[in-house]
Design a protein around this nucleic acid. Structure first.
Length: 697
RNA sequence: GGACGUGUAGCUCAGUCGGUUAGAGCACUGCGUUUACAUCGCAGGUGUCGGGGGUUCGAGUCCCUCCACGUCCACCA
């Protein structure tokens, strides 16, 4: 054995040994309770960042621990097509070449993105392997695998047949640059300074920050109790420039104390206005098209972009004296979470999922602990979401995704929903020309079905045996996007919860507690860290010091310290095993607990037992940080600094105990530091692999 | 505006049911070590547990209040 543990010499070889031994694939045994984790699939085209390393560390510790406990353990890996995310990245690449998605037809674009993702899809997988992930790669799934898509279609059809899918003209968050609508959750709100314009509407003055869509106004609204306007209710106001009359109505959302206490209602281009229009059954007019240009407006504005139109309208209103005054205001506006451009609320035909029946069931499951959220604070957040979730717009105007299996009859405009196959004829009128909707599903609609979609399409019997899965572990920031959707759709499609427990983990921040982002330049590349200090050190560094629930500040110092710990363990082994020739020829079995009379021997064996029990208990409670600390403390302080030093004067006598304690240390350390422990185990000359060793309870 | 958190050593964080002298790692200081490891050992000690009030025999822990900070959500045009 070398003087220092050189991880780069061992890690790759050891991983190959594990993989080829089949240790990652569970052996189904109906008599035993399985342990199952479905991996949150990373984006297929992205390299791993430090956040991925956190879930790899956590889930691999759990998988290895339960595997050693003798449970048939399946950690099922996958990758995600990540619709908007990936298309956005790809379009950025196109832009670098001076191209855009409009230069290609749908099928070509899809194929190009497919190829691009294929090129990169091995990266994240090999990087997870680099970190020691003991996932069953023979069951790897991709969210666009045809059999997965079939499951998604089946669920959509069931939802449609049971009346939970509807197509409605609804106001959606539309990014004119991305050319797609976004869910509420994908819109960011940023603060901005703007002008508030007071416009003369003939009978009264209204205040608005957006003068350009006044052409699509259908009413002016005031608060029902506002005395200033009481005499005007039911009368008419006049839209400037075009001089069209619109009714003056009342609605409680209007804040009498803000602005003029009177607002224009443009339901085609404002969320609040849309809701007012719904309540008052007002028509919906459009003044802005999906490309962000003006339509249905006086000729001089037609075709202008929104901000150009605003300038022009303001100039004209100023000239005619119809702007009573302007005020500076500070407010928040919605921007696209991808490219930061201003979100244009727009009326558009979209597919919606009525969520109430699903959230109701999910809420009951959470409250009765059929699905147990291991942290109280996240349970509260999940409950809050389930109570307040609005109907879910599941269609996206992008090509990179699962195309919605909806065909419209060209004759009678009836929609035919199938479970994937193109319908031959319209079931209503018999017409044979039908065209498929261009939209694709929101990525979360398909990934929300991931736990059962994967298990229904891997090996025969997998679903029956492994579902519901044991625990779902993922970062808390996707609780509303993904986790509650999995509970909702899992319950709906299978009648069972998708997982019995949810273990949320926190985000990884840098040592100053800053969120890690490329623009801040504080990214910690997990692979670089693993290359420098070893995967074991990185894993320990990640679980060390903070609860799984909480955000962690990861520093290189921390990882270096754990590298030292790995080396410590290595050198303990070097000390214990170095006497092999002299002492270790008595056919002693290192896995057997020796009988002892010496007080030091008794002490270390008792401490070992205590630590084993404690670590087992802590792992069962997902208190990985405390388990890691206990491990560190036992091996370094008790075993090395204390016991091992004392044996130096009585080596032969203590050898059996040293070997046994070393072996047990390898076992309890293995989930955390799989490589160095396996490397040492191989040095003992014993058969087999440590990964398959039984846990010592 | 709403929800959920956080505040403990210089730094990053634990502290479970309210119970002994509040802990760990890193950093720091001193001493030591050729033979398992300098990726080492031994020793050292730093705390108004954010402030204030309350409950209690007893509070870092429970309650109230204030302050500071964070995250998510949101409909003030």
């Amino acid at each position: 054995m070398d003087k220092v543990y050189n991880h780069s010499e061992y890690e790759e070889k050891i991983y190959k040994k594990w993989e080829s031994s089949g240790a990652f694939s569970p052996i189904v045994n109906k008599k035993k309770k399985p342990f199952t984790i479905i991996m949150p699939p990373p984006n297929a085209n992205d390299p791993l960042h430090i956040g991925h390393a956190r879930f790899v560390a956590i889930e691999d510790i759990l998988a290895r621990y339960h595997r050693m406990q003798g449970e048939p353990t399946l950690w099922l890996p996958g990758t995600d097509h990540a619709g908007i995310e990936t298309q956005y990245v790809f379009e950025k690449k196109l832009r670098e070449k001076g191209k855009s998605r409009f230069d290609y037809d749908r099928d070509t674009l899809y194929k190009m993105i497919w190829d691009y993702v294929q090129q990169n899809s091995d990266t994240s997988i090999s990087q997870m392997k680099r970190l020691g992930a003991s996932a069953d790669w023979s069951r790897l799934k991709f969210t666009l695998d045809p059999d997965i898509v079939k499951v998604i279609y089946g669920t959509f059809k069931k939802l449609y047949d049971e009346g939970l899918i509807y197509r409605g003209e609804r106001i959606v968050n539309y990014c004119t640059r991305c050319g797609t609508s976004f869910s509420e959750l994908e819109v960011n709100h940023v603060e901005r300074d703007d002008e508030l314009y007071y416009l003369d509407y003939g009978t009264l003055t209204i205040a608005t920050t957006r003068p350009e869509p006044i052409f699509a106004d259908v009413a002016v609204a005031v608060h029902p109790k506002d005395k200033r306007y009481k005499h005007l209710i039911g009368k008419k106001a006049i839209i400037p420039i075009i001089n069209r009359e619109i009714p003056i109505i009342t609605d409680a959302v209007v804040d009498p104390s803000y602005g003029a206490g009177a607002v224009k209602v443009s339901p085609g281009h404002d969320k609040v206005d849309f809701e007012i229009a719904q309540r008052h059954k007002l028509p919906i007019l459009k003044a802005i098209d999906v490309d962000g240009r003006m339509i249905n407006v006086p000729e001089k504005y037609a075709g202008l972009y929104v901000n150009q139109a605003r300038e022009a309208v303001v100039a004209d209103l100023t000239e005619t004296g119809l702007i009573k005054k302007t005020e500076k205001i500070h407010h928040t506006i919605g921007v696209c979470y991808r490219d930061k451009s201003v979100i244009e609320p727009m009326v558009s035909k979209q597919w919606f999922l009525e969520v109430k029946p699903l959230t109701k069931a999910a809420l009951a499951a959470v409250k009765t602990r059929r699905v147990r959220i291991t942290s109280q604070k996240f349970e509260k957040i999940a409950v809050h979401w389930l109570k307040n979730l609005k109907d879910w717009n599941i269609s996206r105007q992008i090509v990179w995704g699962i195309r919605i299996p909806a065909w419209r009859c060209e004759k009678c405009l009836n929609w035919e929903i199938t479970s994937g196959l193109e319908p031959l004829e319209c079931t209503k009128c018999g017409h044979t020309k039908l065209t498929q909707d261009k939209d694709t599903f929101d990525t979360w609609f398909s990934s929300g079905q991931w736990p059962f979609a994967t298990l229904q399409t891997t090996k025969k019997g997998d679903f029956d045996y492994f579902y519901p899965t044991s625990v779902m572990n993922t970062a808390y920031d996707i609780l509303p996007f993904w986790v509650i959707k999995m509970v909702m759709l899992g319950l709906y499609a299978t009648g069972e919860v998708p997982f019995k427990e949810i273990l949320f983990h926190g985000l990884v921040r840098d040592r100053e507690g800053q969120k890690i982002s490329k623009s801040k330049g504080n990214v910690i590349n997990p692979i670089k860290m693993a290359e420098k200090y070893g995967a074991d050190a990185l894993r320990m560094g990640i679980v060390w010091g903070a609860l799984v629930d909480n955000d962690i500040s990861l520093s290189e110092d921390n990882i270096r310290g754990q590298r030292n710990f790995a080396n410590k363990l290595w050198n303990i082994a070097r000390f214990v095993l170095s006497n092999e020739t002299k002492i270790r020829n008595s056919k002693h079995e290192i896995r057997t607990r020796p009988r002892v009379t010496n007080l030091d021997d008794k002490w270390i064996l008792a401490e070992l037992k205590k630590s084993q029990k404690k670590i087992t208990k802590l792992l069962d409670k997902y208190r990985l940080n405390e388990a890691a600390e206990e491990l560190y403390n036992f091996i370094w302080k008790k075993f090395a600094d204390s016991y091992l030093e004392k044996t130096k004067s009585r080596r032969e006598d203590a050898q059996a105990v040293l070997e046994y304690v070393l072996y047990c240390s390898l076992v309890i350390a293995h989930p955390f530091m799989p490589f160095v422990t396996e490397a040492i185990y191989q040095e003992t000359g014993k058969d087999g692999l440590l990964i398959n060793a039984p846990w010592i309870n």
